[in-house]
Amino acid sequence: MEPIMAVVIGVIYATAIYMMLRRSIVKLVIGLILISNAANLLIFATAGMTRDAPPLIPMNGGPMAEVIADPLPQALVLTAIVIAFGVLSFAVVLIRRAYQIVGVDDMDQMKDTDT
């Protein structure tokens, strides 16, 4: 499955970067959402993808599966998802604020306004 995910991740990265390069500031937000998802998937998929073996140890002391999914990248991605949301909300509000003050949504014009 991993090679397919590699291609999917490449596609998400490409779309994210394309959106981030646009001049319209609203598109930047979409780009941010895409790129954080791409990064999360990358970490998750690179560690190897295992089916039907969540990193839980049976409560009743029963035997564990031979191979279980790697818990560490899961822990990393879990916080990354939440942090990405925090950063996104910050960015979105920042952009909204910038738009209100400057009154343009073109990144190129924003450069020249020293307000």
Partner: peptide
């Protein structure tokens, strides 16, 4: 012990 925890519950 099972899926859950502070992040998920908080959300």
């Amino acid at each position: 012990d099972e899926p859950g925890g502070g992040f998920i519950a908080g959300l």
